[in-house]
Design a protein around this nucleic acid. Structure first.
Lengths: 337, 337
DNA sequence: CTGTTAGCGCCTTCAC
DNA sequence: GTGAAGGCGCTAACAG
């Protein structure tokens, strides 16, 4: 079925293409006589006319498209943030809706560069990165010369981008404080890959409080290669080999925590009696466990809303005086600690 | 920074825009003298020139874009299939790379219609739906008049679309056979929402084998509102109220299985001693559990490859005589059954 | 092998 | 309130 275009539709109605364009637009519809406008909209609907957005993009210089980089599509928190950002972006029913171009970097700088290149070639109106690492600083700065670049979830140390972040350091600190209050003297972290600022900051906040409250962080540090439950599971042996043995673990996210818990269960160790555990993110998983997981609730809503606002304002006015913000998470104490 | 366009680049090099276009293309580069071609490519790289793909799309009538519908971005199996499809689509290094437009339907027919509309307006070269339900039949058939529409994972009964599916009925049958072999006499399913053909077929295959091997399926059927662990957790009360009490459960996916297991743990019931459980999908989760979950391995690779091939061939030639295929999953017996 | 020309479908002046 | 005309950046068709 050949697609109907605007010229053909105009011809059929005996009006000019420009009139059709105006009648079908959001912002210029008032320039068309109400009767004509309705007639045109009716006919467009009946004929199944669909404006060609690639042509409109070329003409307008605006694609109503936003590129979004995420390191791992399997991460519930990232997905929640993406969903929520676009819910906010599309909530403005006056503005035309925005199509996200979602791409996964898997934390490969090469992939990141390629994807950003693609975004720019496709004329995205802005880029949101939930995946930035220090390796991407230069690429992102380059991109920022062409379109607004907004960072969410992950900051880049030493680079100034409009951003919407969780105060991971405060989150780490909350966990340490909680351990102190529960009387733990020896604790340990199961750290996520320090490539992303997220985990670095969680570790920092936790360690600072441990130092100030004279809790001993075991000298051995446990790093998981990835922030997944499989990697978490593999850390238990190392954890149990530590002497003196910690009584509480801060796992840098819920997946890691789950891995540790399953490994413990396998060995017949109980949580929290043998080892208390706190995770991070407050994922669905943390709630369904038979021993519900203590965790830090990620401020998904706030981070997403602010990221959405930054993007919207920067698209409307690239010189918009943006404000980066850091949102405070909150500790949720459940049965695992 | 004003973006450089092809005309400006050509001017700078003292050649025609068409020559630049050819030199930078994949398929017509051989038409340009090697020396000129290299000079142009160098200069393009140095100047940071990026062809405008929206303009190219308009001219070519091909966007090198594929729309992909998924019901739930939080589902590991869907994400795996999406990843794998695009790995296959992009593997052909001769062809220009394809940008996916990923959109989540949450199984709302309205959202589906809107998203398909957007895809077509953005001139996608094809649509892949991993989210089709019977409510979408008409919309998808409409769309199929404009671009190839390929179904993956979920079929639509009574509609003919090129598709790449898992033989869910066979999968359900395998689980029942396994229960028969283990000597279970009374069994029950925790069914996912029948909206998607997936769960209907799993249920059917399971029930058929139960009937033929004279295993009793408990008269009460357990339906989870969604195929999530939270919903699975809530089914345990109903399961335990069934009389006669089943000794084995077929949960329609791993998330449901996990929910049931956690609820059991909460009550002090052991798996598999008190209740054997088998899930579906062979997700990461199923492997890390302390009592590793028996499950049915989803043929992600085959489904994805075939979906990718269908899309590639149908884009190249819309009248391509496609073959829909059904791939057989395989039972993985672990400790939970 | 390279240049010329035209036009993809839309939106935005400008004119009336 | 509507029409006429041009051009966004690219590539296909046709010359030469």
């Amino acid at each position: 079925m050949a697609r109907l275009n605007m010229r053909e539709l105009a011809l059929k109605l005996g009006v000019d293409r420009a009139t059709v364009s105006r009648a079908l637009s959001n912002d210029k519809a008032h320039l068309v006589a109400p009767a004509t406008r309705e007639r045109i909209r009716q006919a467009a609907g009946a004929a199944g006319y669909r404006p060609d957005l690639t042509a409109a993009t070329l003409r307008r210089g605006r694609s109503h498209t936003v590129g979004i980089l995420v390191s791992d599509l399997g991460n519930e928190t990232f997905i929640d943030v993406i969903r929520t950002i676009f819910r906010h972006l599309d909530a403005r029913s006056d503005a035309p809706s925005i199509t996200p171009l979602i791409a996964e970097t898997l934390d490969h700088p090469d992939a990141t560069r390629r994807l950003i290149h693609t975004f720019l070639s496709r004329r995205v109106d802005a880029i949101i990165s939930l995946a930035s690492t220090e390796a991407d600083t230069a690429i992102l700065q380059d991109a920022a010369r062409e379109v607004p670049v907004v960072l969410a979830i992950r900051a880049i140390a030493g680079a100034v981008f409009p951003s919407a972040l969780c105060d991971d350091r405060a989150g780490g600190a909350m966990v340490a404080t909680h351990f102190a209050e529960r009387g733990h003297k020896i604790v340990c972290q199961v750290q996520g890959p320090p490539l992303s600022a997220t985990f670095k900051n969680r570790a920092l906040g936790f360690s600072e409080v441990c130092a100030s409250r004279s809790i001993v962080e075991t000298p051995q540090r446990i790093f998981a290669e990835t922030a997944t439950s499989a990697a978490g599971k593999r850390t238990l042996d190392a954890l149990l080999a530590i002497s003196p043995r910690p009584t509480a673990i801060f796992a840098h996210n819920d997946a890691l925590a789950l891995g540790v818990i399953e490994a413990m269960r396998h060995r017949g160790l109980r949580c929290p009696e043998d080892l208390a555990i706190v995770g991070f993110n407050n994922t669905q998983l943390s709630r369904i466990l038979a021993v519900p997981l203590s965790t830090v609730d990620y401020p998904v809503e706030e981070v997403s809303r602010h990221a959405g606002e930054l993007v919207r304002n920067l698209i409307a006015d690239p010189s918009y005086r943006f404000e980066s913000r850091l949102f405070t998470p909150s500790l949720i104490v459940r049965a695992s600690s």
